[in-house]
């Protein structure tokens, strides 16, 4: 009588495309929450965005709470 055992072998392959997409998400998200001082909206609203600071104000509390220098 033979005894069968089974093992599960897991292989991990990570595509370069996935790494590229995630690296872009990482950099963009970090910039928006941690460092934007009107830069993102200035692409649409011009210089006024540096005065309005909408994203800065929106992320203000998280910026302090997560340890990023804010102002």
């Amino acid at each position: 009588m033979s005894e069968f055992r089974q093992i599960t072998v897991s292989k991990t392959g990570v595509s370069k495309l996935a790494i590229l997409v995630l690296a872009i998400v990482f950099a963009a998200g970090l910039f928006v929450v941690g460092f934007d001082q009107g830069h993102v909206f200035s692409l649409v609203y011009g210089e006024q965005a540096y005065t309005d600071l909408y994203i800065h104000e929106l992320t203000h509390d998280m910026r302090h709470a997560a340890g990023f220098p804010c102002h």
């Binding site: 995630l22 690296a23 998200g29 928006v32 104000e57 929106l58 998280m62």
Partner: peptide, 24 residues
């Protein structure tokens, strides 16, 4: 009010960003 309400939204954005690094 804008700053306080942004706490959770900013959490989602920062989480997605750091999660992307963690995933890699």
């Amino acid at each position: 009010v804008w700053q306080k309400s942004g706490q959770i939204l900013a959490g989602v954005i920062l989480g997605t960003s750091m999660g992307a690094l963690f995933g890699i």
